[in-house]
Computed example of a mutant assay.
Amino acid sequence: MTSTELKIVQSPMSSVSTRVEGWECGLVTPEAVWKGVIGAVRAVMAGDDQRELIKITVGGDVLSDHALMPAPDGSESPDEWLTRMRQKFGAETPILLYARELPSHERSLFDLLVSALGRPVFEEHGLVRGNIDIEVFLGEYRATPGGIHREQCGNSHFVLQGRKYMHFWHGEDWIPKTADWRAAEGDNAIDPEEYLPSLQVPEVVDRGTSLMASAGEFFTWDPGTWHVAETVGPAFAVNIARYTRSFVPGEGTYPFVVESDGRVSTEWLEGYRDFLGDGADLASALAAASAYGLAGADPEHKETAVPRRVAIAGHARRLWHESRGSVQVAAHGRSGVFPASVLPWLVGLADLPYGAECDVPDDPGTQALARFLVENNSLRAVQRLA
């Protein structure tokens, strides 16, 4: 295990659906996640705001002034942005910056999350046919805007800086009969959410469970769990929401069943294709599985030279499926077809640790595979020693 891969360091309540665990990963830093926020800011500035990529809430109001957004050139850190907002609106005013779909606007964050978080987060909970949203919550507030709510998604909520509470309630028997109950409206309605806007946390907190996480810890909760967050001072967190299209835990997921060398069976791959629906073929299903269903920006470069030596650049499995004398290989959301002769070299990569180097054989098929894996950031090209 290296500091580049997510390590779960404790699991005091791993048998319950709402829990706090510790985590370590040297590369999942506030700075790395902030790059995704800046990518979303730039997209909004360019006119892409179809899904409320950035939402700034001050007090009880959502403010749309672009001047309030983090500096799109990346010159403003999370702490600097929050300090600017508190100076403008007052230190006691609740402030929240919410950003979503971050890997779609920053390729480095996509690669980092697929590599570092894939196995302990996505493989543990199963694949979903709905979207996977990567969200940021930065600010200081007494309750998540909108109040107590539930979603059709399972969540892993990593605290990067500060401390925060998450208040949870299970089932519906705890809800007062007089409480207002409404569904989400607007852009979020395609990922159904339900709210209890008339309830204040202090009124019902004793009917649920309250957990606190500090930097280096994360919350996990199942779809359909009522919840609301409360920060303890300023806090910065990144949330992974796996949409199952159901409020019922366990529904809408497909088990991730892959051998240690990355091979997937025909039965599993065909089942996943059918699970995805929407005309997916085996190649696109394998590609989706190799990124755990997470969508990301296109790779930033194309490898023009044939790599002669490569190093392992990520922890995500390189998936493959052999059929009719060829092998379909997928990594970080892309797939390609190569001759079956590449398998000995490909399978050997699975035994190498992060950062380990190896030579690329001279045959054209393996060289094409190596270039494909470098282009998609599963491997990186290195200078071969003379």
Rank of each mutant, 00 (worst) to 15 (best):
T2Q: 06
S3R: 04
L6H: 06
Q10K: 00
M13P: 00
R19T: 12
V20P: 00
G26Y: 12
V37W: 05
R42K: 13
M45T: 02
M45C: 10
D49T: 00
G60I: 02
S64Y: 11
H66T: 11
A67C: 03
D73W: 02
P78Y: 11
L82E: 01
L82A: 02
R84A: 11
L96M: 15
R100L: 05
P103Y: 01
P103N: 01
S104C: 13
L109K: 03
L109S: 06
S115V: 00
A116R: 07
L117V: 14
H125M: 12
I134F: 08
L138M: 10
L160K: 08
G162K: 06
R163Y: 12
W169C: 01
G171T: 08
I190W: 13
D191L: 14
E193C: 12
E193G: 14
S198T: 15
V201K: 13
P202K: 13
S210G: 05
M212I: 15
T231R: 03
A237K: 07
A237F: 00
R242F: 15
R245F: 11
S246F: 06
P255L: 06
V258G: 02
S260C: 07
D261L: 09
G262S: 08
G271K: 03
R273V: 04
G279H: 07
S284H: 09
A285F: 02
A288S: 13
E303N: 07
A305E: 14
R309Y: 00
R317S: 12
W320D: 01
H321I: 00
H321K: 00
E322G: 12
S323K: 11
G325L: 01
R334F: 13
G336E: 07
F338L: 08
P339C: 03
A340H: 11
S341W: 03
V342T: 14
L352F: 00
V360S: 08
D363F: 13
D363Y: 09
L379T: 05
L385P: 00
